[in-house]
Amino acid sequence: MIEVKRDNDPRLDDPWYLTKLDLAGQIYARLGQPFLTVRSDEIPSELHIRLKRITDARHTTVTLRDFDVLRSIYLRRQMRLTYAEVVQALGGGPVGFAKVAAFQVRRVLSIDLRDELGDDSLINFPGR
């Protein structure tokens, strides 16, 4: 989990907000998920480009059927699936990519974005 904040975000000076972020980190740690808060100006350009591709599709419409598809493919396999498998299951091509990206931003899917996203990248479905 990466919480990206703009370098001029006034909440970064709010002790209550910082406590909230700390508590979120503790909860994610208990779930075995990493949690990082970074300022947008601290993100290396190659990672920024990778993240932007995902966040640009954050408003993509996903339906209850799309959720059912995810549950179905993950329950059948009982493991992490590859990016290519999940994209294909959600319609393939640009539509499938956009839905995977939207699910990542909405924290339904978990993709390790430290490396370039490729067909063999593994995707977790924490809600399975």
Score class of each variant (00 low, 15 high):
residue 1 M to E: 10
residue 2 I to K: 11
residue 4 V to I: 15
residue 6 R to V: 05
residue 7 D to H: 07
residue 9 D to A: 07
residue 9 D to Q: 10
residue 10 P to C: 05
residue 11 R to W: 14
residue 11 R to A: 07
residue 13 D to T: 13
residue 13 D to V: 03
residue 15 P to D: 09
residue 16 W to K: 14
residue 20 K to A: 09
residue 20 K to S: 06
residue 21 L to F: 04
residue 24 A to S: 10
residue 30 R to F: 08
residue 34 P to V: 07
residue 35 F to Q: 08
residue 40 S to D: 10
residue 41 D to Q: 08
residue 42 E to Y: 09
residue 43 I to W: 04
residue 43 I to Y: 02
residue 44 P to G: 06
residue 44 P to H: 07
residue 45 S to C: 05
residue 45 S to F: 07
residue 46 E to L: 00
residue 47 L to D: 08
residue 47 L to F: 01
residue 48 H to Q: 12
residue 51 L to S: 03
residue 55 T to C: 01
residue 55 T to R: 14
residue 55 T to V: 05
residue 56 D to S: 10
residue 57 A to K: 15
residue 59 H to I: 08
residue 59 H to S: 13
residue 60 T to L: 08
residue 63 T to V: 08
residue 66 D to E: 05
residue 67 F to M: 11
residue 68 D to V: 01
residue 73 I to Q: 05
residue 73 I to Y: 12
residue 75 L to K: 12
residue 76 R to S: 14
residue 76 R to E: 15
residue 78 Q to D: 13
residue 79 M to Y: 11
residue 80 R to F: 04
residue 81 L to V: 01
residue 82 T to Q: 00
residue 83 Y to M: 07
residue 88 Q to P: 00
residue 89 A to T: 00
residue 90 L to G: 03
residue 91 G to Y: 13
residue 92 G to C: 09
residue 92 G to T: 02
residue 93 G to V: 01
residue 94 P to H: 12
residue 94 P to Y: 11
residue 96 G to C: 00
residue 97 F to H: 14
residue 97 F to N: 11
residue 98 A to P: 07
residue 104 Q to D: 10
residue 104 Q to E: 11
residue 105 V to G: 03
residue 105 V to S: 12
residue 106 R to Y: 07
residue 107 R to F: 11
residue 107 R to Q: 14
residue 108 V to G: 00
residue 110 S to G: 08
residue 112 D to R: 10
residue 114 R to H: 12
residue 115 D to M: 07
residue 116 E to N: 13
residue 117 L to D: 03
residue 118 G to A: 06
residue 118 G to V: 04
residue 119 D to E: 15
residue 121 S to C: 04
residue 122 L to D: 06
residue 122 L to G: 02
residue 122 L to A: 15
residue 123 I to P: 06
residue 125 F to K: 05
residue 126 P to I: 10
residue 127 G to L: 12
residue 127 G to P: 03
residue 128 R to V: 09
